[in-house]
């Protein structure tokens, strides 16, 4: 018996988590002196209000959760005799996992017979979500932790996310993208194209002039890197740009197939605080990530 965990940084909503059977760890963000825990302080994420607030100039910050908070999530499962499989966002992106390790080490002393497994999706938002969904499918199909981990060894690297960001000030502040040299400080009308590499880090890999060209660049990546895209979900994450996501969905269907399983995803507020509003991406099954 085991319990599946994921976190709000993977973009899984509370409703979906309940449906699949995931427990959700809440990754907080703060602004104007308030710290908010997604899906603990509210049931549903009001993305419009949130991204409008970012457009109006608010720059939220994000923070790691502490050891005690992790213990409060994990201990009840161990106490009930259940092991844990936690499908989480990239370790490269937050110091929070050090706190998690400490919590797990402490719990292991108390519950030596219990097992904890972390599955690093080497990504965040949609990059993680496609793996979270696949693991959810396997969980529902009754697969064991071992089977899931065996699958993840290769498959974690066979999903690729490409996205563009509208306003670089968010990324500059967070320092979480490499290759975004200071030289790219004021890219007016030019959008950086960013991907997540196999190490789970965000890397800027090019630029596109204008939104239309940026979208075209994403579509070209599907063409170039896509692998059996029809057998898996295609995710279109967006930071508060649902109309744009709908447009892109239509373009993907037109070019790659009407019957594709496309899911539009609202990027969670914590990750959104780093990308800024009006960004958009495409995540699909691909050849191995670089």
């Amino acid at each position: 018996m085991y319990t599946l965990f994921t976190d709000s940084d993977t973009d899984l909503t509370l409703k979906e988590a309940r449906e699949i059977g995931y427990k959700l760890i809440s990754m907080p963000y703060s602004y104007n002196g308030k710290t908010i825990f997604p899906y603990e302080d509210y049931e549903e994420f009001d993305s419009k209000t949130y991204y409008d607030m970012l457009r109006a100039g608010t720059l939220p910050t994000t923070s790691a959760i502490g050891k005690e908070k992790y213990i409060s999530y994990f201990e009840p499962e161990f106490a009930a005799g259940r092991d844990i499989l936690y499908v989480h966002f990239s370790r490269e992106m937050s110091a929070t996992f050090n706190n998690m390790d400490e919590a797990v080490a402490e719990l292991k002393e108390k519950y030596p017979e219990r097992k904890f497994y972390g599955l690093d999706t080497k990504g965040i938002t949609a990059q993680s979500l496609c793996i979270v969904y696949e693991v959810g499918d396997m969980y529902k199909a009754g697969k064991s932790i071992e089977e899931i981990l065996e699958w993840a060894k290769t498959e974690v690297y066979n999903f690729s996310l490409y996205f563009f960001s509208e306003d670089l000030k968010f990324f500059h502040r967070s320092g979480r993208v490499s290759g975004l040299a200071a030289a790219m400080g004021t890219l007016i009308g030019v959008r950086p194209i960013i991907t997540m590499n196999a190490e789970g880090k965000m890397v800027a890999i090019g630029k596109a002039r204008g939104r239309k060209k940026a979208i075209e660049t994403l579509l070209q990546y599907i063409e170039e890197k896509g692998d059996h895209i029809e057998d898996h979900r295609i995710l279109i994450p967006n930071t508060g740009a649902p109309e744009l996501a709908a447009e892109v969905e239509a373009l993907v269907r037109e070019r790659f197939g009407r019957d594709l399983n496309i899911v539009k995803v609202t990027t969670n507020p914590t990750a959104g605080a780093h990308c800024g509003p009006d960004g958009l991406g495409i995540c699909f099954h691909s050849v191995k990530r670089d």
Binding site: S30, Y31, G33, K34, T35, T61, S63, G66
Partner: peptide, 10 residues
Amino acid sequence: NDFKAKLEAI
């Protein structure tokens, strides 16, 4: 630590 976490929000 709690004090610091609260400061992080401001």
